[in-house]
């Protein structure tokens, strides 16, 4: 079920609205801001099992016995100009990735992807709290025209603090934690911020470029010349984070990069469940479908990861960059 709101109706109450309305006359909803619901987009609540059988009161198929998949297993959300897909993958018990994004009409858009650290407690709660908290800060900045880099730092720190509050006293070792990658996009520029190994890519008309550097021990060793890129990929420390969000993060600021948007393109945010299978920008470029809306791009990239084995949760958010043609 795509949740693309019609331009003719209020997404909350369904009342007819005109594109010029700032608020819905029916329910008072802010029509300029559209975003993923706090707590995560409701998963598509299928009334039936994939095999066609009815589901019983406990959510089991009366025919094939399969349990109704948890709401987070597959998440899809679509807004004009940006969309995201998050999938549990084929191996993990839970989807501990989260995504959140939104847009402010005529101003810009913001998106966040966080990947819960599997060895920590309640990792899915950590990533969900982080994306929701960060998106609030970013959308406020988009609306008010605040400084993108300052907003990105504020968003990461607010998310870090929110995740930190989930920790149980005396269980610091397994305190809920997650990675972070964000994008704040206006008509002129885009700012990407990150903590950990979730990535952002810029896709132009002739190629793709990675905008982030992984905060992992392996990446650090590559930077110091101890490991080659190739060795790092197979090294057991490849995914051991050197920075993260959470009670024990001691985070001072995210890394961030800002660039001018002059030509149309795509900004792709993803968790390592995608880039494990497409490690180089060229791989991403080769796998990317052309001439389709962002949601199709996100779906196709997730599909590539699933077909390659889907060993981890896979999350992809795709933001369309219009290059001065209006977000």
């Amino acid at each position: 079920m795509n949740m693309e709101p019609s331009k003719e109706n209020c997404p909350a109450c369904g009342a007819a609205v005109s594109p010029q309305d700032r608020f819905c006359e029916g329910c008072g909803r802010n029509l300029r801001v559209q975003r993923t619901p706090v707590g995560g987009p409701d998963a598509v609540a299928e009334p039936r099992c994939a095999c066609g059988g009815d589901l019983d009161a406990e959510g089991f198929c009366v025919r094939c016995g399969r349990a109704r998949p948890p709401a987070r297993d597959r998440v899809e959300f679509v807004l004009p100009g940006l969309a995201g897909v998050s999938d549990r993958g084929r191996r993990r018990q839970r989807n501990e990735d989260s995504l959140a994004f939104g847009r402010v009409r005529a101003r810009g858009a913001a998106a966040v992807v966080c990947d819960g650290v599997a060895s920590s407690e309640r990792a899915e709660q950590a990533s969900q709290v982080a994306v929701d908290t960060a998106l609030d800060v970013l959308l406020t900045a988009v609306q008010s025209g605040g400084d993108p880099e300052a907003a990105t730092a504020d968003a990461a720190l607010a998310a870090d603090a929110a995740v930190g509050r989930l920790a149980r006293p005396g269980a610091e070792e397994v305190a809920p934690s997650c990675t972070f990658v964000s994008a704040l996009v206006t008509e002129e520029s885009a700012t990407v911020g990150w903590v950990g190994d979730s990535r952002a890519y810029l896709v132009g008309e002739t190629g793709a470029a990675r905008l982030t550097t992984d905060d992992t021990w392996a990446a650090q060793l590559v930077a110091e010349g101890v490991l080659t890129e190739e060795e790092a990929l197979t090294d057991r420390r490849a995914h051991v984070l050197s920075r993260w969000l959470g009670a024990d993060s001691q985070l001072e600021a995210p890394q961030a990069v800002t660039f001018r948007v002059e030509t149309p393109g795509l900004l792709v945010l993803c968790s390592d469940g995608l880039w494990n299978y497409l490690p180089e920008p060229e791989d991403l470029w080769a796998a990317l479908p052309r001439g389709v809306p962002p949601v199709e791009v996100a779906r196709e990239l997730v599909e590539v990861a699933l077909k390659a084995g889907g060993h981890d949760n896979v999350t992809v958010v795709v933001v369309q960059l219009r290059g001065g043609h209006g977000a």
Binding site: C61, G65, R66, A67, R88, R90
Partner: peptide, 13 residues
Amino acid sequence: RVRPAEVGQRMLA
């Protein structure tokens, strides 16, 4: 004996 499902799936056996 059931038809095995994919890793991560649950079933009422």
